[in-house]
């Protein structure tokens, strides 16, 4: 090859290698930025108070830095969303993979994809202005901002994720296993629930954990519909605040740089990052185990 061609290949290779490294820098960037402010935060607040305290009032005169109310709000909303998303998502996956004809799939699937593609701010609008009024007419004690409406809407938002990842897992179960079950005189439902679902279990588990991780990190629905009152409650009809909604709340105000309030959002962000990281890792291992068995 001519020198020019060799030079071109070498130059391009170096550039695109650096591009590939951008993702690594992103990860280090996230950890670095979060760590930097979080360390400053923990110079002023004890880590024990942060992780065990049950009052969160960093924006008030008497500041308390117990993050548990935010965690409580986050878990409450996410758990509610899972009550909707997991069973419906799994059932939808079973329908798509075991029952739907090719034509039914081609009609139903785009709807689920649109459901997954709607921006979260739109879901927030729907939760606050459509679902909450309905909840109020059923349960008069429902507050204007409440965890339940956010949970329900978030559940439907996550349903397509659960359905599509679970469906991939169900479809990866070899046909020979289904045939073996049919040849013993099993009905279609018995094949689906007693052979296919158990065989795809680790793939389905990965889908469920991914869904929980998404629910914990979801921001706009809760920022719009669930309120700004960090408190320790299990009542879904009350106003609460999640970790993500708190970050939005502070971001919208004029919080001066280097104030403790500014640092709190990084500390909360760090906790959020670690929680989703752990779940992503677990989900990754389930997926890997599933692949080892069937691919």
């Amino acid at each position: 090859m001519t020198n020019r061609r060799i030079l071109e290949q070498k130059t391009v290779l170096v550039i695109i290698f650096l591009f590939a490294l951008v993702s690594v820098f992103t990860t280090f960037g996230i950890i670095g930025v979060l760590l930097q402010e979080t360390i400053l935060f923990f110079e002023q607040v004890s880590i024990v108070e942060f992780l065990t305290g049950t009052r969160w009032t960093p924006l008030f005169a008497s500041k308390k830095f117990g993050v548990l109310p935010l965690v409580n709000g986050t878990v409450l909303v996410a758990a509610g969303a899972m009550v909707v998303a997991l069973p419906l998502g799994l059932l939808a996956a079973i329908y798509m993979s075991e029952y739907a004809s090719t034509r039914a799939r081609s009609v139903l699937k785009p709807f689920l994809e649109i459901l997954a593609g709607i921006p979260t701010v739109v879901y927030g609008y729907f939760a606050l202005l459509f679902v909450t009024p309905i909840l109020k007419s059923i349960f008069p004690q429902t507050q204007a901002f409440n965890a339940l409406s956010a949970s329900i809407v978030m559940g439907f938002m996550i349903l397509p994720t659960v359905a599509s990842v679970s469906e991939d897992a169900l479809s990866a179960v070899p046909r020979s296993l289904r045939e073996a079950a049919y040849a013993l005189g099993a009905t279609k439902a018995e094949v689906a629930t007693q052979v296919v679902v158990p065989a795809a279990l680790s793939g389905i588990a990965a889908a469920f954990i991914l869904a929980i991780s998404r629910a914990i990190g979801e921001t706009m629905i809760v920022a719009i519909a669930a309120g700004q009152q960090p408190k320790m409650t299990l009542n879904p009809l009350e106003s609460i605040e999640t970790m993500t909604a708190y970050i939005v709340q502070v971001s919208l105000g004029d919080t001066p740089h280097q104030s403790i309030a500014y640092q709190t959002i990084f500390a909360v962000g760090m906790l959020l990052f670690l929680m989703t990281l752990v779940m992503n890792i677990i989900s990754y291992f389930f997926t890997k185990r599933f692949r080892e068995v069937y691919e």
């Binding site: 921001t219 962000g269 989703t276």
Partner: peptide
């Protein structure tokens, strides 16, 4: 990175 909540990118 595909699984990191988008708000974390905002903090970054």
């Amino acid at each position: 990175l595909a699984g990191v909540p988008s708000i974390i990118y905002g903090l970054l």
